[in-house]
Design a protein around this nucleic acid. Structure first.
Length: 275
DNA sequence: CCCGATTCCTGTAGGC
DNA sequence: TGCCTACAGGAATCGG
């Protein structure tokens, strides 16, 4: 389930391999992702140079030397891989939907079993694209302050977990890191967000930043599908305190971790440490 | 605008 | 062993 740390790990893994290279070919084996892959994608990309791979929230932005930018979203089971020559590029599996080919046999491949991902092209400022224009601040940049989080929390009527998973409030926090950050903050996921105090919003902001930074440092979390560009998994799953630990003892107090559905998503918390 | 429910998809796990 | 169902979830979209 790629959240910000997994997408950032992917960005860091991919960029050095393709930066400055020109796209030689694009193979679309299956265009049926979250939205159809535009049939014009190869025409838009072939001959273009990849200048930069950037990230905005959970979106990867491939800047080119043309007017268009490629947007890639990994959905919940997507991963990008790089192989360095034609020999090492294995035969595509049933979920390997797209290949981008570069000089010297370098191949970037999108695998996405559940096909919730997306590959799109946009002209001009990619941040103005309808999918990106309403995104909230980056959690690891200066706009994500505790005052901002507190003000936002006071103006809304959802649970605190739903709030921090709302990409209009802050980007990149999915189900795993929301559960983890709330545990680190001692806040119950089901608490009404407008009832979370200024102080606790401050603690929560710091916890979100901390857990995302730590996870990036570990190459992200691999529970099922996520792998890095070279096929290695992330290691942050070993640090998870509550996510997926229903019934197991809390690392702080030993009480059994509880699982409950909040807003159509399973949430994990310690009934003793989180209030 | 805000919010809850529904929707897309497929691999996996659990029950019988 | 095999069949069936529930579940996993990012986030757009719809209906109230």
């Amino acid at each position: 389930m790629p959240e910000l740390p997994e997408v950032e790990t992917t960005r860091r893994g991919i960029e050095p391999h393709i930066k400055g290279l020109r796209v030689e070919a694009v193979k679309i084996r299956n265009s049926r992702l979250r939205w159809p892959v535009p049939p014009t994608l190869p025409d838009s990309l072939i001959g273009r140079q990849i200048l930069e791979v950037e990230r905005r929230g959970k979106y990867l932005l491939f800047r080119t030397d043309g007017a268009e930018t490629m947007i890639v979203h990994l959905g919940m089971s997507g991963s990008l891989s790089i192989s360095k020559d034609t020999n090492s590029t294995g035969a595509p599996g049933p979920h390997d939907h797209l290949d981008w080919l570069f000089p010297g046999g370098i191949c970037m491949r999108l695998r996405d079993p559940r096909r919730f991902g997306a590959v799109l092209m946009t002209e001009g400022d990619p941040l103005a694209h309808p999918l990106l224009r309403h995104l909230g601040p980056e959690p690891l940049e200066s706009g994500f302050t505790s005052d901002y989080l507190h003000a936002t929390a006071r103006s809304r009527r959802v649970t605190i977990k739903q709030l921090i998973m709302d990409s209009r409030v802050v980007v990149g926090v999915g189900n795993i890191y929301a559960s983890e950050a709330l545990f680190l903050s001692g806040i119950r996921p089901g608490r009404a967000c407008h009832r979370v105090s200024r102080l606790r919003c401050h603690v929560l902001r710091d916890a979100i930043v901390h857990v995302l930074r730590e996870a990036i440092g570990q190459g992200g979390t691999t529970l099922r599908d996520f792998v890095r560009e070279d096929g290695r998994p992330g290691y942050f799953q070993q640090q998870l305190k509550v996510y997926g630990r229903s019934g197991l003892p809390c690392h702080n107090c030993g009480a059994p971790v509880r699982q409950r559905r909040i807003g159509q998503r399973s949430s994990f918390y310690c009934p003793v440490c989180q209030r």
